[in-house]
Computed example of a mutant assay.
Amino acid sequence: MRIAISGSSGFVGTALRTSLVQDGHEVLRLVRRAPAGPDEVRWDPVVGDIDPAPLEGLDAAVNLAGAGVGDRRWTKAYKTELRQSRVRATTLFAQTLAGLDAPPRVFVSASAQGIYGADREDEYLDEDSTTGQDFLARMCLDWEAATAPARDADIAVCHPRFGLIMGASGGAFKRLHTLARLGILGPLAGGHQFWSHISLTDTVRALRFLIEQSGCVGAFNITAPEPVSNAEFIRVLAHAIDRPAILPAPYFGLRIVLGEYAKYVAGSLRVVPNRLVQSGFRHEHPDARSVVAAALSPNTPP
């Protein structure tokens, strides 16, 4: 297959690209600099510039572009960047695909579990659940809506709504692992809040499933089927590396360090992957113990 990926140098994009190339697929990377080879296509979502010619005849396109939600403290300017880096990039990608003479069959465009809000306590959240009204929820709604040009062009559009992706090379797990090794990790803001986690391996497998399986369209929660409290996940991690997990982090401390983003870190989202499982996907790492083991193993594939 020929597959174009935006955000291919990020945590998930790197793993997806590696997996596809290892299996012999041709991957085109959308980059924001001068292309370094025939497998790269320059684009600039800020000014709306992209050369569509190399994208003709694609089998699939994957959109993972967007500034990191937890990379910086949320100032007003950074919140604008978070939204615009997603909506502008998605709009440009979708419009370009829709205008091709030979468009791809499927457009897999990222979203996130934040679409359900910051805190839904112990409510089970599947793809038919109501969405939230806060900043992240509205951003995710606009992010998904930006794919409309591709959908209107009869391209199958899938929205993988990512949970907390756990892998050694980045994301939340890398930070948690560092704190756990130092013995300074414990329950966050009481610890009862649900974390909807998933291994990086299953994340890549789920994206490939959406790319490769005809008939997939719409929203898919990309989480493990057994979400647990943050206290339980941290306990499993600490036990796996033989460290204590007894130093709690109160909410006011998170607020000082993280600002507005603290309410999302301390929120509870019990997200389940109903549509993914019903479509035939089977997780290799369905629970916290297997997710942690996969993240800690040097032999785990991307």
Rank of each mutant, 00 (worst) to 15 (best):
S169K: 12
A231K: 13
A67H: 13
A266F: 05
V21Q: 14
A146S: 10
W143S: 03
N299P: 00
G99F: 09
A231L: 03
A288T: 08
V271W: 07
K76E: 12
T223F: 01
V47W: 06
N63Q: 15
Q22V: 00
T178S: 13
A53K: 07
L210R: 06
I222M: 11
G48C: 13
P45V: 10
V31I: 13
I115D: 00
P227D: 07
L247A: 15
A153L: 11
I246N: 05
G190M: 04
P298I: 09
A150S: 14
R42V: 07
G171F: 08
A137D: 05
V46R: 15
A249T: 15
V108D: 04
G170D: 07
P244Y: 14
R243S: 07
N274T: 15
A153E: 08
R289Y: 12
V277E: 15
H285G: 01
R205S: 12
A53Y: 00
L92P: 01
L20G: 02
P54K: 11
R86Q: 09
L276Q: 05
D287V: 04
H197W: 14
R235G: 13
V31R: 10
D122A: 15
P286N: 13
E232M: 06
P160K: 11
D39E: 15
D49P: 00
P298V: 09
L28P: 04
Y261C: 00
L164G: 00
G99I: 10
F11M: 12
I241L: 06
D59A: 14
A295E: 03
L64W: 05
S109H: 03
R32E: 08
P244S: 12
R42L: 09
R289N: 13
A112F: 02
A65F: 06
A4I: 07
L100M: 09
L182T: 00
R243P: 02
V41F: 12
S279K: 10
I165Y: 01
L200A: 05
L269K: 05
A67P: 04
T223H: 02
P273K: 08
S6K: 01
P301D: 10
V27R: 09
L82T: 01
T223I: 03
S290K: 11
A240R: 07
F281N: 03
S9V: 01
G99P: 07
G99H: 05
M139A: 02
R181V: 01
S19A: 15
E121K: 14
D39V: 08
R181Y: 00
Q113R: 02
S279P: 04
L16H: 08
S290V: 05
G190P: 04
S279I: 06
L247S: 11
S214K: 13
D134N: 11
R181F: 00
L141H: 00
L30C: 03
L141Q: 14
P298M: 11
V228F: 02
G190Q: 05
T14H: 09
D101Q: 15
A240F: 04
A293G: 11
A189C: 05
A145V: 03
W195A: 02
A148C: 00
A240K: 09
M139D: 06
L200N: 05
F11R: 06
D101I: 09
D287N: 15
F209P: 00
V62M: 08
Q133V: 10
I155R: 04
T91A: 11
D126P: 02
S199C: 07
P248W: 08
C216D: 01
V277G: 02
R83V: 10
S199M: 10
R275D: 05
F93R: 03
S214A: 14
R282H: 13
R32Q: 12
